[in-house]
Amino acid sequence: MKIFGIPIFPEQASTFAADVDALYFFVLATCAFFAIGVAVAVIYFGIRYHKKHDGEIGARIEGSLPLELLWSVIPTIIAMVMFGWGASVFYHLRRPPAEAMHIYAVGKQWMWKFQHLEGQREINELHIPAGRPIKVTISSEDVLHSLFFPAFRTKMDAIPGRYTELWFEAQTPGEYHIFCTEYCGTNHSGMIGTVKVLEPAQYQAWLQGGSMEGTLAQRGAKLFNDLACSTCHLDTGQGRGPSLKDILGKTVDLQDGSSAIVDEGYLRESILNSQAKIVKGFQPLMPTFQGLISEENLVALIEHLKSLSPNATTAAAPATGAAAATPQPAAAAVEKK
C-alpha cells in the first residue's frame, strides 16, 4: 500500500488482509478525530476564555445533563462498534477452515524451520499454493519467538513447550516477508525469511522434488520404531503402555481419577513428561524423553501418532496445552503408563 508513491503498508496478500486494515484504519481515524477535536477545543477555549485582567472571575456553570449523556452514550456506541467489529475479525483469524493445508513451523535462534506433511523441510523459506487455506502449527525450540507474515496480516507467538497456530489464505503469487516480532537474542533482526506463493500447478511441481525421507508421518513411524516405542505400545492393548491405535480425540481415564482428551497437546506432554498424566491401569514405566530429540522429530512422531487414528475428528486440532519446554521422543507418546 502506497501513499503518494511512498510504501506505507505491506500489500494485502491474504483473504482477510483487507478486513484487518479496514478495522485498523477505522480505529485510527476515530482516535485521530477525537484527539484533534479535543486539542482544537482546548486551544479555542483557552484563547476565547482566557483571563483578561486580575480579579476576573469566570461565570458559574451548573452543567448540562443532555450534554453529559451525549458524551457518555456516543463513546459507548463507538466502543461497542470497535468491539463487535474486532471480535468478528479475531474470530475469523483464529478459526482455520477444516480443509486447510497443514504445515509445522519451529522457531529457533535465529531461524524458522518449516515442515510439510509431504516430507519437505525448509529453513527461512516457505513454499505454499495460492488460493488454498494454510494452517501453521508453531512451536519453539529455545526461547520465545513470534511468527509474523506482514502481507497476510497475521502473527502468532512461538512458545517453548506448547503449540500455537495461525492460518491464512494467500491470494496472489509472489514473494513475501517473514519476520520474528519477539526479541529473541542478539541476532533477532536477522531472523527473517520468505514466503513463496506459487500457482497450484507450480506448487505441485515443487512438491515433485519430494523428500527422500518420505512423508512427515513416515519419518515419525521410523522414529517410533527406532526409539522402541512399538515394543510397549501394542495395537492389542496388551503391552506395557496403552495402545495408540485410534486414540486421537478420545477421552482417557487417568490414575488420579481425572480424564483427558487425547489431542496434540496431550501427545506432546506424554512424550516429554511421561509421568504427568498416567493412564489408568498402567504403571509409570515410560522414561522421560525431554531433550533427547529435536522439535522437528517430535512433530514427526506426533504426526505418525495422528496417522494411527485416520477417522479422528480432532486429527488436525492444534495442541494448546503445555508440555515440557524442550522437545522429546515420542515413543511413549501417550504411554503415560
Rank of each mutant, 00 (worst) to 15 (best):
G321F: 07
V252E: 05
V20Q: 06
K196F: 13
G86F: 10
L227M: 15
D235E: 10
A331I: 12
P173E: 01
H50W: 10
M82S: 11
I278L: 14
E68W: 13
P66V: 07
L23C: 04
I78R: 06
V136N: 02
F148E: 09
I302Y: 05
S258W: 03
H92M: 08
S270A: 13
I128R: 10
T76G: 11
F16Q: 08
G107N: 03
T186A: 14
A98E: 11
G84R: 02
K222C: 01
T215R: 09
A228P: 02
F152G: 04
D226G: 03
N187F: 10
V42Y: 06
R121L: 05
V197S: 05
K196L: 10
K51S: 14
I57P: 02
A316F: 06
F90I: 01
A221P: 05
N187D: 15
L298Q: 15
V197A: 04
K135P: 00
V89A: 05
E296I: 10
A300G: 01
M1I: 07
H53D: 11
D226F: 06
A312H: 04
I43H: 05
G214A: 09
S211R: 12
S72Q: 07
L144M: 13
K108C: 09
A300D: 13
I6W: 08
A260W: 02
H145M: 15
T15I: 11
E175Y: 02
V279P: 12
A105M: 15
Q115F: 14
E122V: 02
S72G: 06
V299W: 02
T186S: 14
S230I: 05
E199S: 05
V143Y: 09
A29Y: 04
S64M: 10
A13S: 10
H304E: 01
A331N: 12
A324E: 13
Q171W: 01
L298I: 00
L70W: 03
I57S: 08
T137A: 06
T215E: 08
I278C: 04
R153G: 07
I134K: 06
D246E: 14
L65S: 08
V143T: 08
V81M: 15
E182T: 15
D235K: 10
P150Q: 07
G321W: 08
C229P: 00
W112Y: 05
M101W: 01
N273D: 14
A312D: 08
P150F: 07
S307I: 07
F25T: 05
F26A: 03
S88K: 06
D54V: 04
